[in-house]
Amino acid sequence: MRIAKVREGAEAERAAARARAEAELTGLTRELSGLRRAISDARRAEARRASEAAAPASPRARERDRGLDAASRAASRAREALREPAPEPVTEGPPPGVGDHVHDPVMGFRGRILAIDGDRAEVQGGSARMRIPLGRLVRDRAAARRAEFTEPPPPVASVSAPAATLEVDVRGQRVEEARGEVRDRMDAAAMAGLPSVRVIHGHGTGALRTVVREELRRHPLVARAEPAPPDQGGDGATIAHLTDD
């Protein structure tokens, strides 16, 4: 309740500040229009009276120019105020936990926490899964409310999660089965802090090799993938090097 009140107050204050800026900009725009018309009329009159085209401007004309310049600067400041981004939402309380809907303001990534490893959280958002510093995440209460009335929550990490290993053998699997196996094993290896994983796909027709390397290129936790050295399977295996953050 306290957070809601603080946020409502912040929203009301931002709305009031924007309304003030808009009103100020409207007034300054009218003032600028009036000044421009007055200066234009005065300059036409002075041009008619001037004996030379290069006659210096009168003190009154210079004063009008200064007024126009000051009003222009004030209008620019008002427009800039209207363009300022809204401040970050007010947050307080304990950090989010497993199962919470969260938002990363830095990356704009939204999802749900599947697991927490030290100071990092594994967040599933749509078809992407990311490891993000826990301290950077804020609860996404709007998404949590929507989830209450839509589909059941996604499963969180449990003892049935695949084990983290330095080697994965997908030979004999169907293409989509191998794709899922590689994705899950990379997730598990990254959570365990492994530096790399060797994926054995064999030579065969090349279909498994293609899908394995495609999945590794797309995986957000894989820094790079390359064929294994000759003594580790050569082109019949692929080494996936995991990110270190």
Rank of each mutant, 00 (worst) to 15 (best):
E52Y: 04
E52G: 11
A53L: 11
A53F: 08
A55R: 11
A55C: 00
A55M: 04
A55F: 00
P59C: 06
R60Q: 11
R60I: 06
D65Y: 13
D65R: 14
D65W: 15
R66T: 06
G67I: 12
R73H: 12
R73A: 12
S76Q: 12
S76Y: 07
R79H: 10
R79Q: 13
R83M: 12
E84L: 15
E84R: 15
A86L: 15
A86Y: 11
P87G: 12
P89C: 14
T91Y: 12
T91I: 14
T91A: 13
G93C: 07
P94Q: 01
P94R: 10
P94A: 08
P95F: 14
P95H: 13
G97W: 11
V98Y: 11
G99C: 02
H101S: 04
V102G: 04
H103Q: 13
D104T: 14
P105R: 15
V106R: 15
M107W: 14
G108T: 11
F109S: 06
R110A: 12
R110P: 01
R112L: 04
R112K: 08
L114K: 12
I116S: 09
G118N: 07
G118K: 08
A121P: 01
V123L: 03
G125V: 02
G126C: 05
G126V: 02
A128Q: 09
R129W: 04
R131I: 03
R131T: 03
R131D: 08
I132R: 04
G135S: 03
G135V: 02
R136V: 02
R136M: 03
L137D: 00
D140W: 02
A143E: 02
R146C: 02
A147Q: 03
T150E: 05
P152A: 12
P153I: 02
P154S: 06
P155S: 09
A157R: 03
V159N: 00
S160T: 10
A161W: 00
P162H: 09
P162A: 07
A163T: 05
A163E: 07
T165Y: 05
L166E: 14
E167M: 10
D169W: 07
R171F: 10
G172T: 04
R174Y: 05
V175Y: 05
V175P: 08
E176Q: 15
